[in-house]
């Protein structure tokens, strides 16, 4: 039986002329459709998925290249690059994408990858922090996430007040807001897979960020997506890196636990 199934799968692959990337696509698909937790990838049309799984077609990799270049670039008064301390990103950064945000005892807040990069720049490199949503910060975030692709998301709440911040994020998730009086849950918990106007709603998982949205025509951060969502329901968006969004990011990592890191992904 098993052999027949594999034969059918192989024939299917050949018939459509698909390559290794298709196998990768199937793996992510399988991981997300066999469980209740589904990546946004599984809601996307096949053309968008193909774009994501081919590193040459995936336009996010233009930013990954920027990040990779910055990794080895000396900046700031300390005369250091990321590489001076962290060596090869593929080894040292592999578990970052799947475990962030983490607790930052200095600010007493959760810290996501973007904030971590800027903390490192300010404290260790004595360099100017990058602006949220700048090509450099997006690029470095994308690069760091890209070396940890496929790792299951596991954000620990053990340190500091992470538990309380996650609770705060949960409250945010279920709080109605904006002129449309909608909470995150109304779309992403009660209606994933259904249409909102012409758009298919997903579960709003965070494993694919930063993401190249075809609508944006560029790479964008998770907080940009949050702001867009808040705007759509006619609510006042919060600032990039704000406490509200950090709490939400921490909580959403719990909702998306065990999804593979896909970033940088491609979405509609």
């Amino acid at each position: 039986m098993k052999r027949t199934l594999m034969g059918v799968a192989a024939a299917g692959l050949m018939a459509f002329g698909l390559s290794a990337t298709a196998a990768e696509m199937k793996a992510i698909d399988k991981a997300s459709t066999t469980s209740a937790v589904r990546s946004g990838f599984s809601y996307a049309i096949s053309e968008t998925r193909e774009m994501q799984t081919d590193d040459i077609q995936n336009p996010s990799f233009l930013w990954v290249d920027i990040g990779e270049e910055q990794w080895g670039t000396v900046d700031g008064e300390a005369g250091k690059s990321c590489e001076s301390c962290h060596g090869n990103a593929a080894d040292t950064m592999a578990n970052v994408g799947s475990t962030y945000p983490v607790w930052d005892p200095a600010t007493k807040k959760p810290m996501n990858v973007e904030l971590r990069i800027n903390k490192c720049r300010a404290e260790n490199m004595k360099a100017k922090p990058w602006k949220y949503e700048s090509d450099e910060l997006l690029g470095m975030t994308a690069y760091i996430k890209s070396v940890g692709r496929g790792k299951p998301i596991h954000v620990s709440l053990k340190d500091g007040d992470m538990e309380a911040w996650s609770k705060k994020g949960e409250q945010f998730y279920y709080q109605r807001r904006g002129l449309l009086d909608l909470s995150c849950a109304h779309c992403h918990e009660q209606n994933p897979g259904n249409l909102i106007r012409a758009e298919t709603l997903s579960q709003g998982q965070t494993n694919g960020f930063p993401t190249y949205r075809l609508k944006w025509q560029k790479l964008g951060s998770l907080h940009r997506r949050f702001r867009g969502c808040n705007n759509n329901i006619r609510a006042e968006p919060y600032a990039y890196g704000s406490d509200e969004y950090l709490a939400l990011e921490t909580y959403l990592a719990q909702r998306g636990a065990n999804l593979p890191v896909e970033g940088p992904s491609v979405r509609k």
Binding site: D54, I56, Q57, P59, F61, L62, Q217
Partner: peptide, 8 residues
């Protein structure tokens, strides 16, 4: 295959 960065 080629990909280039341009705002178009």
């Amino acid at each position: 295959k080629t990909l280039i960065s341009h705002k178009m």
